[in-house]
Design a protein around this nucleic acid. Structure first.
Lengths: 193, 193
DNA sequence: ACAACCATGGCAGTCACTGTCATCAGTAGA
DNA sequence: TCTACTGATGACAGTGACTGCCATGGTTGT
């Protein structure tokens, strides 16, 4: 017989999401989350740096995958082409089975500015990591930062659409479409109106 | 003789920035800021919703001005042209005299993730306000959101350059240049590669 | 003057988060 | 098998952010 239940981290995450959904983020204390899975508040804060972080775990994995995607692009690929590749990679992180979960999680995040802040910080971190990778490939500033920000914007918009009720297309497909919309806007030719 | 020193809000802001610069954000308590200008912690929190907010006041003014800029664009202007106009307006908020102050403030923000979060939230708020304004002008989604995000990205990059040591050009000029860089990236040859 | 107002202080309370020390199951090694 | 040692956890005290509530006393309009 084991003393500690396994995977305390995952249990905390699941319990937190559940409680946040049912009673809101501010109305849920860290101690309450911990207690609901048989742990103490102190242990909660050993797994997560703060109460918000419990909803943002795994971001590092996505970031690493995206960076691998960037690194895997042909050396002479344009910033836009490199970004496009990174986007394809990112889509693999969100298979259709995850859609329901992602929707639920996003609902909670959007309801609480404190969580939205954290999400924005994670996206900014992703963006600057991509920018650094692009610079490493010889793309100068400000092109690297602009391209990275564009990638994150496209991803965010596409993700939002993917989460929308009634949407059934896979994320990659939506990303490609949004990417085309983006190109249309910034070229500002006949395509924009 | 007056009982209350005037402009408590501004004095709190100035004192906060000063203390944050000298001893860091976490090392400075709200009570300390308040005491340094002869007020109490309780009063501090009457002026600012939280400790971070003391550095982010006036964002509403910028937002309103940018929205006015959007509203003032010709009805048939493309998203890109409308954005460009909004950017020009935003630049007026940062005359050269403010450069030193802006630099100092930005240094503090970048040193503390908690402050960075708040900054990102403000920028996101600005972005979605612009997107809403664009929708109000008949621009459909996702073009409205993409255009608004692009505007904020360009602004952010240009602002970062404006703040850089040695940079002497006015913000508007830098914004125009970054805008051109952005167009160059997303057009990227024929369309996407 | 009088009253209604308003910026502020004082105070108690909750909760996020941290440092520190103790506990105790499992594990490697003598 | 006895013995460190490790690693996850609990217990507890402490700080600081933030809130609600009530009191106080200048300020302002009539």
């Amino acid at each position: 017989m084991v003393r500690w239940q396994p995977e305390a981290r995952q249990r905390l995450q699941a319990a937190a999401l559940d409680l946040f959904v049912r009673q809101g983020f501010e109305q849920t204390t860290a101690a309450e989350i911990a207690r609901s899975v048989g742990l103490t508040e102190r242990t909660f804060f050993r797994y997560f740096a703060d109460k918000r972080e419990v909803l943002f775990d795994g971001q590092e994995l996505l970031q690493q995958a995206v960076l691998d995607g960037v690194a895997g692009a042909p050396a002479d690929a344009s910033p836009l082409a490199t970004i496009a590749r990174a986007l394809e990679i990112s889509a693999a992180f969100f298979p259709d089975e995850r859609r329901g979960f992602a929707r639920l999680r996003q609902t909670v995040i959007e309801r609480h500015p404190a969580l939205r802040e954290r999400e924005l910080l994670k996206l900014a971190s992703l963006s600057s990591a991509v920018a650094a990778a692009l610079r490493g490939r010889g793309i100068p500033e400000p092109a690297a930062t602009l391209a990275a920000s564009t990638a994150v914007t496209v991803f965010t918009v596409a993700f939002g659409q993917w989460i929308t009720d009634g949407e059934t297309r896979p994320l990659v497909e939506i990303e490609r479409e949004v990417m085309r919309d983006m190109a249309a806007i910034t070229s500002d030719g006949p395509l924009t109106r």
